[in-house]
Amino acid sequence: MPGDDTLFHHALRLGDDALVLGQRLSEWCGHAPMLEVDLALANIALDLLGQATHFLNLAGEIEDEGRDADALAFRRDVLDFRNCLLVEQPNGDFAQTIARQFLFSNWQELLMREIATAPEPRLSAIGAKAVKEIAYHAKFASEWVVRLGDGTEESRSRMIAGLDWMWRFVDELFDPKDGAASLRAEWDARIARTLSDAALEMPKPRRGAMGGRAGHHSEHLGHLLTEMQFMQRAYPGATW
């Protein structure tokens, strides 16, 4: 059914975004600049892993071929992943991680507000829970953008570099094909407000990198999956 297929892909996109970013953030565990920050990043990662589990289970339910969240997370290859390119970008330094979180969480919050009122009840229930988590992520990341942007010379140049790395993946978030284009104006306003507080300039528009939603990813995703899926690949069929 085409309707269900659309819903399946919708849930898959939401689940994959959360899964891949949660995986990335969990790489920080034990290595953050300060113990307090370590705990904060782990909390965000745990929120995202929870969202991923809910959205991917829903996708499996809609698909109705016996796949659950684990089957979807651990037994698909790159071409079948539907996350945006932004979330699979490497952590880099702390500024690069914050840049990614700042751009993504602000977008995800706006999107999830819409999803929380979506007519499909299973989707809206997940969205309603997630939106509170994400509002915190967006605030947390935005505050760090201000601290780093308006901190030392070094932190400022690292923040600029981090935003510069991530900026080309912004357009993909608002691809009209996914129906998120209407969020752009509000997102732009939010980003501009924080960057102004941070005494940073809005990065120059540039040709956006696209393809994640069609399974055409950056090289980073393959390595992320190699690590994440290792156990399920090495021991197929085992339960854990």
């Binding site: 034990g30 290595h31 953050a32 600049p33 920050v37 702390f94 780093l148 308006d150 932190s155």
Partner: peptide
């Protein structure tokens, strides 16, 4: 982890 984070701790303090 501690050394890589030094600039972050400094930036937040300066800010």
């Amino acid at each position: 982890a501690w050394e890589d984070g030094a600039w972050v701790r400094e930036a937040a303090a300066v800010h």
